[in-house]
Computed example of a mutant assay.
Amino acid sequence: MSDPTAASSGPALDQGAETRLDDSRKQDKPRSLGSDAWRELRRKPAFVISLVIIVLILLIALFPGLFSHVDPNAADINHARQGPSGQAWFGYDVQGSDMFSRVIYGTRASLLVGVLSTIGTVIIGALVGIVSGYYGRWADSLLSRFADIFAGLPFVLGAIVILMTFNAPGSNPGEVRIITQVVLSIAVLSWPVAMRIMRAATLVAKQQDYVKAARGLGAGPLRIIFRHLMPNTVAPVMVYATIALGANIGAEATLAYLGIGLHAPVVSWGVMISDARDYFTVAPHMVLFPAAFVSITVLAFVMLGDAVRDALDPKSR
């Protein structure tokens, strides 16, 4: 006679074996580059810390009223240059304005310049680089030499020439106009790096079989560039953009400190540092707090870019 216990346990054992087999298949299934990179990023403390800082900076820029209810332009000369206290955590500036409120509300302008100038840098550099790498020959030589001209310009000198050309001494351009000019100046002087990265990636990608197959099927240059090459070459440029965003925020502060970038009535970290440069010995808090926000933000974007680059590059693991 057959054992009823064995008969009843047979299907259960088979089901358990199938479950284990399915789990092993899921584990053995190859992951995509994106999922593999995300798996590596989650293990990096530098990525988590930088991401938390960047999210906090974005929240401050988008919703400054959640962090400070004080008008950043309100001034009381009786509090001029007073240090940090319970009433004003970061102290007061030379006009008697609350430094904490100005740092909070200045985040938006500094971040806006950094983001817009980075977008301009990526667009110009990516388009020139992919055209240069795809067509090669005389087009590559011409565009590469054109990029070398801009790459050879010292950033500060080039920015001074551009901004002083558009703004005569003593002129007072509007807030939107001066932000636009600073953004364009940074983008025009920074795009050659993105161009070289995109060009190198395009030279490798255009030799791949999918590009040759698309060309053999009669696809035109524009279709090959935007449909096949661009999605497969933009990753290294985006990694560079993450690092460049932090550098561009620092560039805004540099230009404002030199007196050729943003200025009042715009509230930004660079403008605050520029206004406080003559009072560092008597009121160091006026420089230290906005400078600390600049440094922390730049460091966060650089750390994020380094972590993403390492995660997307299997050779670095």
Rank of each mutant, 00 (worst) to 15 (best):
R196W: 07
I243K: 10
A126C: 04
A46I: 13
S68Y: 04
I249F: 14
G10V: 07
A235E: 06
I179M: 15
N172I: 00
A235M: 11
I54E: 01
F67M: 06
T254A: 03
I124G: 08
I49G: 01
I186N: 08
F289S: 11
V211P: 01
A264L: 07
D310W: 07
L62K: 02
V237P: 10
L217W: 08
R137V: 08
A159I: 14
V131R: 03
V211S: 02
S8Q: 14
A214F: 05
H285S: 06
K29T: 06
S144D: 12
N78T: 12
I249P: 11
S190H: 04
D148E: 15
A17Y: 09
G106W: 02
A311M: 09
R199S: 09
E18Q: 14
S117C: 02
L62G: 07
D148H: 09
L217F: 09
G216I: 01
R317D: 13
I160T: 13
V176S: 11
R145Y: 08
T107D: 05
Y135C: 01
Y279W: 01
G250E: 13
L258S: 12
R223H: 14
V188P: 10
S110F: 05
A37R: 04
I243V: 15
T233W: 00
R277I: 05
W38L: 15
A264K: 15
L66T: 01
Q87H: 12
S97V: 00
S316P: 05
A292T: 15
V70H: 10
A214L: 03
F67T: 04
V239F: 12
G158A: 09
S35D: 08
G305A: 05
S185V: 12
G220F: 04
F293Q: 09
P154K: 14
H228E: 11
S171V: 05
T5K: 13
F47M: 10
P45S: 14
G83N: 02
V55C: 12
V266E: 06
L312E: 04
F166G: 12
N73Y: 10
V298R: 01
F166T: 14
G246F: 03
L58G: 15
V113R: 07
W191H: 06
A159K: 12
V52N: 04
P221T: 02
S2W: 02
H285Q: 14
V103R: 15
A307I: 00
I119F: 15
S295Y: 09
R42N: 13
H69L: 11
Y240F: 06
L143G: 08
G136S: 02
M238W: 09
P4D: 13
L222Y: 01
I273E: 00
W138Q: 12
P192Q: 04
I225G: 00
S85G: 15
R309F: 01
S101H: 11
W89E: 02
K315T: 14
A311P: 11
F166C: 10
H228L: 05
T165D: 09
I296K: 00
F47I: 10
R227P: 03
V239K: 08
I160M: 14
S32I: 03
K206A: 00
R177F: 09
V308D: 10
F301L: 04
G218A: 10
W191D: 03
